[in-house]
Amino acid sequence: MPTPVHRYRSDDEDSARWTGFPFRDGDIVISTRSKSGTTWMQMICALLVLGTPELPAPLTVLSPWLDWLGEPQATVYDRLAAQPHRRFIKTHTPLDGVPLDPRVHYVVVARHPLDMAVSLYHQAANLDRERLAELTGQPAPAGPPRQRPPLREWLVSWVDREVDPRSELDSLPGVLMHLNDAWARRHEPNVELVHYDDLLADLGGEMRRLADRWGIAVPAARWPELTEAATFGRMRERADRLAPDTLGVLRDRQAFFRRGGSGQGRDLLDEAARSRYQQRVAALAPPDLLGWLHR
C-alpha cells in the first residue's frame, strides 16, 4: 500500500489516519479545501453511486471525513468496510498527504480563493467551539469569543497573511499549495479537477462528465431528478440530512448552506486590495493554474 509523502496535522485532523487504509477498486477520494465545494461533491458522488436522491443515511455517515479527529479511526474504518456500495470519502488533505492508489479515483474541487475565504469567515461563526474541542480532545476555549474584525477588513488581512502553508491550510498560501499539487497531477488518469463555477454554470454537464470518468452508468430518465437533488437550493432544504454535522458541531445546519454563489469576495475588495491579491497569487501559483482558477 503506497504511503503519503507528507503528514498534515491540526487540532481537528491528522492525515496519518490514511496510512494503511484498505482501499477497494473504484473508491473515490474527495480532496478539497474548506468551503470549496466539499459537501456539494459528496452529494454528487452519492447521487451517482446510489442512483437516487433518497439517501439511506445522512451524507456524513455515507461519506465520512476520514482524517477528522472527532470520531475514532476504527469507527470510521469499520463504517466504510461495511458499505456494500462504491465508497466516496472526504478529506481536506492535499493529494501529497493521501496514499495514491491506481485503483482509486481522486477528485479535487477548486473555488476562487476569495469566495472560499468569505464562506470560511461566515462558517467560523457557525461552529460550536466547545463541542468541537470536546470531540477532538482539545481544551475547551477559555473566556469569551474573540471579537473578529468586519468581513472586508478580515479578507484584506487574510490575503496578506504570511504563514506556513503546511500548517495553515486554509490560508491563501495553503489553498494554492493544495491546488498546485492537484494541478501538477491533472493529467493522471485517476485524478480529476472540478471548478466550483463549472458546477454553478452546468451542474448536469459536470455530473455527466464525472459519471463517464468514473465508469458509472446512469439511465437517461434519472438525470433530471439526480441533477435537481444536487442543486444548492434543494440541498439547503435538506440541511438536516446533508450538512456535515452528525455530532453537533454546527450551531445552525441551514446556515452551513449560506449562499453558494461566486464573486462576493472580489466585490468586497477595492482596486488596491485586488491588485495586492493578484500580486500575492502570482507568487504562489503558475499562470496557467491561475487562469483556470480565476476565469
Rank of each mutant, 00 (worst) to 15 (best):
W292M: 12
V194D: 09
R24W: 03
L268H: 09
N126W: 07
R86I: 06
H112T: 01
W68N: 05
E71K: 15
G97D: 00
P189T: 01
R236Y: 08
R241M: 11
A229T: 08
I216M: 13
Q254I: 12
D78C: 09
E188M: 07
E162N: 13
R222P: 02
L48D: 02
F232D: 10
A221R: 15
L135T: 12
L59A: 09
A16L: 05
D14A: 04
P53W: 03
E271V: 15
D27N: 04
T32V: 13
V118R: 08
S36M: 06
T19Y: 04
S167D: 09
I89Y: 13
L172K: 10
P244M: 09
L127S: 05
G51T: 03
W40V: 02
A110N: 01
S157R: 15
P219T: 08
M207T: 15
K90W: 10
W68K: 08
R166E: 11
E206D: 12
V281A: 07
V175Y: 13
S36W: 00
T32N: 15
Y277G: 00
M1I: 07
A81C: 14
P286V: 06
R253A: 15
M1R: 12
A221H: 13
P287A: 07
A283K: 01
R276E: 07
R152C: 05
Y121C: 09
N180M: 05
S34K: 05
A57E: 13
G261A: 11
V159Y: 09
R251P: 09
L55A: 04
I30P: 00
V118Q: 02
T60L: 09
H85A: 11
L155Q: 13
G37H: 01
A201N: 15
M116H: 12
D96Q: 05
G70L: 02
T91P: 03
Q73F: 00
P72M: 07
P145Q: 03
L193A: 02
W183P: 00
A243R: 02
D240F: 05
A184K: 11
V98E: 02
G260K: 03
S167R: 11
R208G: 13
